[in-house]
Nucleic acid binder design. Structure first.
Lengths: 211, 211
DNA sequence: AAGTGTGAACCCCTTCACAGCA
DNA sequence: TGCTGTGAAGGGGTTCACACTT
């Protein structure tokens, strides 16, 4: 099991490596990759070590091989589809962003209580009434859910998702979610983020070396 | 300077304390606050200690006083206004969420290159052409910016913001932003978050004890 | 000469555990 | 008795520093 910060960095390295590949670069040194991904050379080498990949002192890392090595560790095609619950502005933003054109992730279905929004999608992603939640998840076997619903409704929806085999949740509501041990929840709380940024902006603190 | 995780938790405690206050609770014990904010008692006591506040063994913490103490540390009215750059779906979601009714934060202005979107707002927040960026920021003295624009345009916009005195940025584009030392940048990368959730959902790892 | 791989040191946050107090 | 305040221990990720390789 990799440390959480390492997974985040690998995700960034990957994006950088894809760009390098498209530019025809075949090799990178740790310090170059570090520069491009806002990390540092020692950290890059440590992260690469953790996924069991190696480079050469003469040429650095082979872009192609490192990409493959990272993909092997952090990619799982069965988790590249998710549902979005809640079709407010934020939900629609997520649906539009991932709906079809994203290279790796797909929103396979969306849900809302409001019948107005259900079925009125722009054709990118099928939208269902909340009642269909169980049915659709069971049919598709989706394991990732993105929750963009009001705080008050979030825990109740989450509780419906757990028994359906959902094991990963991205929660945009400003409420810490109770979840079983085997479910991983990530909070994305824009107000809390703002508050944090305000605090450190005031103190003029240096941003984390990585991130 | 408080540790970053502590600031995040204080933000959560604060929300819980507001609820408790509304329910008429006058005191809380560390273990109750911990329960409600998904932390733990020792952590709560340590965090409270870090902001120089104290409670009593008999009654715990006075809700009113603790709220005040946290506010004193993490709140700064001059940083409660921000601009939003980019009025795509995501930008509009942010504008709508904070536009007027949020208790503490306000989006004071929004910008977009697309003349279609400029001025066509729902009246909640004034929308300007990107050209007005310098003018509006200088007039309002706003120091926080929320960037919801395409990755390719992000760095260029950020580079315009730095000399205007912007010291805090929330960046939704999937690009690590280069910033001067005195500017605090927080990335909110939904694809990266998804990737992380997928990784740990697969491993069935327990979520961070805090978060 | 320059870069990788990695043990070990380091740092920082979290958790323990207990003295002190109501 | 039960909870707070906090020194000290613990744990985990980051950085150092250097042997090894080309």
């Amino acid at each position: 099991m990799l440390p959480e910060p390492t997974v985040e960095r690998l995700s960034r390295y990957r994006r950088v490596l894809r760009d390098l590949h498209e530019q025809g670069q075949t090799h990178v040194f740790s310090h170059d990759l570090a520069e491009l991904a806002h990390s540092n050379p020692a950290q890059v080498r440590r992260d690469v070590m953790l996924i069991g990949h190696t480079g050469s002192p003469a040429k650095g890392y082979r872009v192609k091989d490192l990409r493959k090595a990272i993909a092997k560790v952090i990619e799982d095609p069965s988790l590249n589809r998710a549902i979005v619950v809640g079709l407010g502005n934020l939900g629609r933003a997520v649906v539009d962003y991932f709906g079809n054109h994203h290279p790796r992730f797909t929103v396979a279905a969306a849900f809302d209580v409001d019948p107005e929004k259900v079925g009125s999608d722009n054709g990118v992603v099928p939208a269902y009434d909340m009642e269909k939640l169980e049915e659709v998840i069971e049919e598709t076997g989706i394991k990732i859910a993105i929750l963009t619903i009001p705080a008050a409704a979030t825990q109740a929806v989450a509780d419906r998702l757990y028994p359906l085999g959902v094991t990963g949740i991205v929660n945009f509501a400003p409420v810490p979610l109770k979840a079983p041990k085997n479910v991983f929840v990530e909070q994305v709380d824009i107000a809390a983020t703002w508050e944090k940024v305000a605090y450190f902006a005031r103190r003029r603190r240096t941003p984390r070396k990585n991130s």
